[in-house]
C-alpha cells in the first residue's frame, strides 16, 4: 500500500483491460482510496468541532483586535468593517502590557524550573522498588489531578495570616515575629547582612504553588523514561567504580535531557497562558498580574473587547516567536525535533 501520494494516483493512465497485474494494482489502489475516504469521514466530526469552537473563534478574535468595539456592540457590528490599529496602539503604548509581560516571563521561568527540578528529584527517589511504592507514586500525583479551585482554596486558607497553619507554624515553631501575608504582599524587604533586598512575596508564592501543582506532570514522564532505560550502562559504571553522583551525571542525566527538553517546552507554553491558578490565588493583585489575567480584566472590567483581543494576539505572537527561536536553536545544534 504505497501508492498513497495523490500526485501518483493522478498521473497513472487509465488501466488497460487486458493486463492482469494492472488490474490487481488497481484493486489494491481502490482499497487505499476507499480507506482514504473512510479516514476523512471518520476524522470529520473532530474537524468540525475544532473548526467551529477553536479555529473560527481564533480568526474572529484576530479580526476583533483590529476593530474598536465594546462587549455590547460586538454581536451586532459588521464583522468586516471599521478596521483600525487603535487597539494595538493603545495596548503596546500602555505600561500595563509590558509590566504584565515581565511578570509573566518571571513567573514562567520560575515555575518551569521548579516543576522540572521537583519532578526529576521525585522520579529519582522512587526509582528503585520499595514497599508501598505504588501508593507513594499515586500520592505524588495528587496535586495535579485534584481540582484547581479546591487546591487554590486550601492554599489560600493555609497561607492566611490570621488563622492559616503555615503562619501559625512559622510563629510558634520557627519564631517568625509577624505573620507573612504570602498572597497579598507585593514586595517585602529582607535584611541580609546589612543589605535590604526587595523580595516579591506574592509572585514567589504563586511560583511555588505552580511548582507544587505541576511537578507531578514532569514526574510522570521522567519516571516513564527512567523505567525505559536499560540497566546495563549503569551496572558497567558501578563495576568500573563510579560513584552515585558520577553515575547520575554521566549516565542517567544525558538520557533524561531529551524528555526534559520536551517537558520544558510544553510547560512553558502552558504556564505562559496560565490563567486559573493566579486568578484564583491572588486575583492578579500584589504584583502577580500576568498577561492572561490582564486580558480577563480588560474583557470583564473595562469591557474593551478590542483591546483584550489585541493583547491576546500579541501574547500568542510572542509565544510563536519564542518557540520558533527554540526550534531554530535546536536545528542549528543538529538535534532532531
Amino acid at each position: 500500500m504505497t501508492a498513497t501520494e495523490p500526485g501518483l494516483e493522478q498521473a497513472t493512465p487509465p488501466p488497460e483491460p487486458t493486463a492482469a497485474p494492472t488490474s490487481r494494482t488497481r484493486r489494491r489502489r481502490t482499497l487505499t482510496q476507499h480507506d482514504a475516504r473512510t479516514g476523512f469521514v471518520l476524522m470529520s466530526p473532530t474537524l468540525i468541532i475544532l473548526l467551529t469552537v477553536v479555529v473560527l473563534p481564533l480568526i474572529w478574535a484576530v479580526i476583533i483586535s483590529f476593530q474598536e468595539l465594546t462587549l455590547i456592540q460586538i454581536g451586532t457590528a459588521d464583522p468586516f468593517s471599521g478596521f483600525t490599529l487603535e487597539n494595538y496602539q493603545r495596548v503596546l503604548s500602555s505600561g500595563a502590557l509590558w509590566s504584565s509581560l515581565a511578570t509573566t516571563i518571571g513567573y514562567t521561568i520560575g515555575s518551569v524550573f521548579l516543576v522540572i527540578l521537583f519532578g526529576t528529584i521525585a522520579a529519582l527517589v522512587v526509582r528503585r522498588p520499595f514497599r508501598g511504592r505504588t501508593l507513594v507514586r499515586a500520592a505524588f500525583l495528587l496535586p495535579y489531578v485534584a481540582p484547581v479551585v479546591a487546591v487554590t482554596f486550601v492554599w489560600r486558607i493555609m497561607l492566611n495570616p490570621e488563622f492559616g497553619i503555615v503562619n501559625e507554624f512559622g510563629q510558634n515553631v520557627l519564631g517568625w515575629e509577624a505573620p507573612i501575608p504570602f498572597l497579598t504582599q507585593a514586595v517585602a524587604e529582607w535584611e541580609v547582612l546589612g543589605l535590604t533586598i526587595p523580595v516579591p512575596t506574592a509572585l514567589l508564592t504563586v511560583i511555588v504553588f505552580e511548582g507544587w501543582r505541576y511537578f507531578p506532570f514532569a514526574f510522570l514522564f521522567i519516571m516513564a523514561r527512567l523505567e525505559g532505560m536499560s540497566a546495563e550502562p549503569e551496572e558497567a559504571a558501578l563495576v568500573d567504580g563510579a560513584g552515585p553522583w558520577q553515575t547520575f551525571r554521566y549516565i542517567v542525566w544525558p538520557q533524561l535531557v531529551p524528555i526534559i527538553g520536551v517537558l520544558a517546552v510544553l510547560r512553558t507554553i502552558w504556564t505562559f497562558n496560565e490563567f486559573d491558578d493566579i486568578f484564583l490565588l491572588t486575583g492578579g493583585a500584589a504584583g502577580t498580574e500576568v498577561a492572561s489575567v490582564l486580558v480577563y480584566q480588560l474583557l470583564t472590567v473595562q469591557r474593551n473587547v478590542g483591546a483584550a483581543s489585541a493583547m491576546s494576539v500579541v501574547l500568542a505572537v510572542l509565544l510563536i516567536i519564542m518557540l520558533g527561536a527554540y526550534v531554530l536553536i535546536m536545528r542549528r545544534r543538529g538535534e532532531k525535533l
Binding site: 473563534p57 478574535a61 507554553i269 505562559f272 474583557l299 491576546s312 500568542a316 510563536i320
Partner: peptide, 17 residues
C-alpha cells in the same frame, strides 16, 4: 491543528465564543 489548539491561551477564544 491539534498543536495549535494548545498554543493559544484559552481566553483568546473565550471572547468570540
Amino acid at each position: 491543528l491539534f498543536l495549535a489548539t494548545y498554543l493559544f491561551p484559552a481566553i483568546i477564544i473565550a471572547i468570540p465564543l
